[in-house]
Computed example of a mutant assay.
Amino acid sequence: MTHILSIAAALAASVMMLAPFASSAQGPDGYYTATPVAQPTKTSFITSNLMWKWRDTAFTANKAPARDNIVCQMIVQRAGALTAFTAGGQAFDADALAKCNARAK
């Protein structure tokens, strides 16, 4: 019986230690958030196997295997220039956003 309790305690400790990583990696609205300058005409689209969905005032998407700046460039090619882009809770600074927006159509 004590062996089972030890295993359960170890499992609970493991889950508690990993919980912060899981929540910071991707929130309920996705890993990426992209706020376009202009109101979009489409509420969803796909860029390189990444599904973007319009939620309130921005597009959101789950984590992709590509670098964050590449993902930003892919969305500006479809949605146009952005006022903000966030990856994993970290907003792009003005320089990074300007470089990304340079790829907009």
Rank of each mutant, 00 (worst) to 15 (best):
A10M: 13
Q39D: 13
A79W: 04
D56F: 12
P28S: 13
M74E: 09
L50A: 09
Y32I: 01
R67W: 04
Y32E: 03
K99C: 01
L18Y: 07
A64H: 10
K99H: 09
R78V: 07
N69S: 08
L82S: 01
D56Y: 11
P36M: 01
P36D: 03
I7E: 11
R67P: 01
A87D: 10
P28R: 14
A91E: 05
A25P: 00
C100G: 04
A61E: 08
G80R: 05
H3C: 02
A104R: 10
Q90L: 10
I46L: 03
P36L: 03
D93H: 07
G89V: 06
A9W: 08
T2Y: 05
G80L: 04
T2E: 12
S23K: 11
L5R: 15
A38L: 10
T47G: 01
T2R: 15
A87K: 13
Q26A: 08
A81H: 07
T43E: 14
S44P: 00
L97P: 00
V37Q: 15
N49R: 11
L18P: 00
Q73F: 03
L18G: 04
M16P: 00
A81T: 12
R67Q: 13
Q77R: 15
G89W: 07
K53H: 15
M16G: 02
A84L: 10
A38G: 02
L11Q: 01
P65S: 06
K99S: 12
P65T: 02
S24K: 15
S23D: 03
M16L: 12
A8W: 02
A94R: 14
P36Q: 02
S44K: 12
S48F: 05
A34P: 00
A10I: 11
F92K: 06
D29K: 09
F92S: 09
S24D: 12
L82C: 01
Q39S: 14
R103H: 15
A66N: 05
R103D: 08
N49A: 13
K53Q: 15
L18I: 10
A79V: 05
A19V: 08
F59H: 01
A87S: 15
Y31L: 05
C72R: 13
K53W: 02
N101D: 04
G30A: 08
M51Y: 03
A38W: 01
L50K: 04
A38Q: 14
S6W: 06
N49T: 03
T35C: 02
T41L: 08
A38E: 15
D93A: 12
N101E: 04
F92Q: 05
G27L: 06
F45V: 00
V15H: 05
T57I: 09
P40S: 10
S23Q: 13
F45Y: 03
A58L: 00
A12G: 10
Q90M: 12
Y32G: 02
P65Y: 02
L11H: 00
A58G: 02
A19K: 10
P65F: 04
I70D: 13
